[in-house]
Design a protein around this nucleic acid. Structure first.
Lengths: 248, 248
DNA sequence: TGAAAATGACCAGCCAGTCATTAATATAAC
DNA sequence: GTTATATTAATGACTGGCTGGTCATTTTCA
């Protein structure tokens, strides 16, 4: 049996094709949007012809689904694992989750998919539902669980997690969308890590189970001191676990 | 001189056309996106033929610019006036601004323009720059000024307004984008006003100039009381001025 | 009756998806 | 090893539908 690659240095074989096509498609979808992406261009970027593309994906929409499935879903699975295994304060859990998101999605090409889905959801409802089911609802569940844990542990005050989960996510969403739309319009660039840090500080401070308020109110009326250990802990928790400021 | 409308009940005359076309275009752009909107449809919705549309707008892109200019810019001007004329805490100023945004943009068709711009920014860079210049940068300036006022007055703690302004805006952005993309995917709808309220509570609490912490720390060490008036005011400010919960 | 406004058939170009054809590779036969 | 044959992979010219934009013609109105 003769080894398959001989005259051509590396005749590309069937197995590699789908991944190459998906990677090329991700680039172009993110760059130009779904409709504006030409399948000829996707094929060309993957080094094949359009006909070949159709050997592996029955339609443009299926190609898109494959892009989402291949990129985002694994990242979510990692985050779900993080939630399960995390030991420590809800504060640090949320910080870790945001950091993980930035490393594996936000700062990469995958970040562009959020924007892509926003853009195309109306015109491709089936795609939107797919994305909602496979991505958004899972992320929501993840964040809600983290916030709920904080409430149960008395670390956060009582809030409606269905709303708060969105408030935790919103700035992340904006960050990716921004990077893929108006970023280049802005002369003075913002630093993503500082931005995420500000967000975490602000929102976690907002969530703090604020015994301190009661203390100060009591102080105003009569009593001079009260148990403040737990507060102090949560305040401290709001300071540590910062994102490391290194890569872009 | 015979009055112009006679046989036809209200023969529409030149002056009304641009506004009618812009309104129809807004509907369709928001609903379908820029590329997917057919000029035939825009014309039909405005009750004219495509040829007529071209009498008033030289191209699809110009029509789009007119839509943005006509809808958003006036709303921003009102907000700028609000900033100038507002007397009171920065807390209530921000609440008022968010409320005004909801009433005149967020809850209306205009909200769809944000999503539209996100979607099309890459394919129409000139449009994106126009929008950035005329809308985004002005909104940023507006919010930054409000936050800065709070800092200057000692109501908010020292924060980097360039980042915080984005954190104030992000949930609003997400809300409109959501309404025009994934809203229908979700069985249990979220109430926009509760959402905005949660956001304001959380972020304004996060911004509070937290003398209380110092007070409690001091209480733990030695001193028994301190000036807490300003804190109390800001805490109170965090409770009043809520959005009225009536219309959708 | 003439000017202004409106029309809609038409064109040119674009692109997702198809398929008859060609190239590459595996298997068989000698 | 080599030739013959079968099978699988890849190609790219083609098509059918669509739509931004045009313009010769018709309608409206002063």
């Amino acid at each position: 049996m003769v080894h398959p690659r001989q005259d051509r240095r590396w005749t590309r074989r069937k197995e590699a094709r789908p991944a190459e096509l998906i990677s090329a498609a991700l680039d172009l979808f993110v760059e130009r949007g779904f409709s504006a992406t030409r399948l000829d261009d996707v094929a060309a970027r993957a080094g094949v012809s359009k006909g070949t593309l159709y050997l592996y994906f029955p339609s443009k929409e299926d190609l898109f689904k494959a892009v989402v499935r291949g990129g985002i879903v694994p990242a979510i699975e990692r985050a779900e694992k993080l939630l399960d295994e995390h030991r420590g304060s809800a504060d640090s859990l949320i910080r870790d989750m945001v950091k993980a998101w930035w490393v594996s999605v936000g700062s990469t090409r995958l970040g562009g998919i959020s924007k892509l889905m926003i853009s195309e959801s109306r015109n491709f409802p089936e795609l939107a539902q797919f994305y909602y089911r496979e991505v958004i609802s899972r992320v929501h569940r993840l964040v809600a669980a983290a916030v709920q844990r904080g409430i149960d542990d008395g670390e956060f005050r009582q809030v409606d997690v269905d709303y708060v989960k969105r408030l935790v996510i919103a700035p992340l969403w904006l960050l990716t969308v921004w990077r893929f739309s108006f970023d280049y319009c802005e002369s003075q660039k913002l630093d993503p890590l500082t931005y995420l840090d500000s967000h975490l500080d602000l929102i976690l401070r907002g969530l703090e189970n604020d015994e301190t308020v009661k203390v100060s109110e009591m102080a105003m009326t009569n009593v001079e001191s009260a148990a403040t250990d737990s507060i102090h802990m949560s305040i401290d928790g709001g300071r540590n676990g910062r994102l490391v400021k290194s890569g872009t």
